[in-house]
């Protein structure tokens, strides 16, 4: 039997997840030696035709990063599903919708108006807009259809495993690859990271408020951040209580609060609602007017609580945009 075939693909992605593979440095060589790469648009020149020719499930595993927001991304994800034994949703965007998923607070028309007309840096006096189809001498050029809503990968195809993070850290990627190659994977549907909250391993947890403790919510640019004390105790929103552990507290160590890129633990469906609940229990007042004042001081609660997980949330998108 030959080496296992592996595919890498990107959907609505920033490229950071591709970079994460390259960041495996010399370890990536070991991986490349052990497998036969059949698709990797960012690095190697394979065509979709090559994939179509493969038998069903001939690819051992496909790693797909990025959210799904065009018909092309949906089609290729479906093709890879058919041709692969395992599908791994790689990174926050594929797992939860990620940063591109914040577009679910608006819709396609609003995005196009902004990008091609209204953004202050745009000059488009001739009204040049992308078309689904453009005729040129060589024939018709087409662009993929752009959806109103951004989807997580598992809303479009069946996903076997998830590697969380924006981008996933090298140790988790290597562990996942080892598990795949050695056939020691956990139950299907597992997020391949520890199933506990980030706060449980955070160095600042000693100062984490257990009960009502804050009277004011501040933003990171408004205060000098204490490098030791729990962010919540400083009145700074930190999604640690609603976020899965496993990143090595990357943001916390850089003296920045967690924004939740690892998504929730397996016991939580809606990361934003879970954080809202945690926040409500540490607001230190029972006075209605004061509660309203504190609530109103959070400029964009939905945007922060669902920073990475809007498409995966219960409500998924804004209605009536």
């Amino acid at each position: 039997m030959g080496k296992p075939k592996v595919a890498f693909y990107w959907c609505a992605s920033c490229g950071g997840c591709e970079e994460a593979f390259v960041d495996l440095a010399e370890d990536i060589l070991k991986v490349i030696e052990a497998v036969d790469i059949v698709l990797w648009p960012v690095a190697l020149d394979f065509k979709i035709k090559d994939i179509e020719k493969l038998h069903d499930a001939e690819i051992a595993v496909s790693f797909i990063n990025g959210a799904v927001r065009t018909d092309e991304q949906e089609d290729i994800s479906k093709l890879l599903r058919k041709k692969s034994g395992l599908i791994v949703a790689f990174g926050s965007c594929a797992h939860l919708g990620g940063i591109p998923g914040l577009a679910n607070f608006v819709n396609r028309d609003k995005i196009f108006d902004w990008v091609y007309k209204n953004a202050p840096s745009v000059v488009n006096n001739n009204g040049v807009f992308p078309q689904k189809k453009t005729g040129v001498i060589e024939g018709d050029l087409t662009l993929p259809e752009f959806y109103d809503t951004v989807y997580t990968l598992d809303q479009v195809i069946d996903v076997d495993y998830y590697i969380p993070g924006c981008a996933p850290p090298p140790d988790l990627i290597l562990k996942a690859i080892e598990a795949i190659l050695s056939g020691t994977l956990p139950e299907k549907g597992t997020v391949l990271a520890p199933d506990r909250a980030l706060c449980e391993t955070c160095k600042r947890r000693e100062t984490k408020p257990e009960k009502a403790a804050i009277k004011e919510i501040k933003r990171v640019h408004q205060v000098m951040l204490d490098p030791e004390r729990c962010f919540l105790d400083q009145g700074i929103i930190c999604l640690g209580p609603a976020t899965r552990d496993g990143c090595g507290e990357r943001c916390i160590n850089a003296n920045m609060p967690c924004r939740g890129c690892f998504g929730p633990t397996s016991r939580v469906v809606d990361q934003g609602a879970k954080f809202l609940s945690a926040l409500a229990s540490i607001i230190d007042t029972n006075d209605e007017a004061e509660i309203r004042k504190i609530t109103n001081s959070i400029v964009d609660p939905a945007g922060i609580f669902y920073y990475y997980s809007l498409p995966a949330s219960m409500l998924r998108r804004k209605l009536n945009v």
Partner: peptide, 11 residues
Amino acid sequence: YLLRKLISQFG
């Protein structure tokens, strides 16, 4: 109060 503000952002 937090939830009210949150759902209004969802339309």
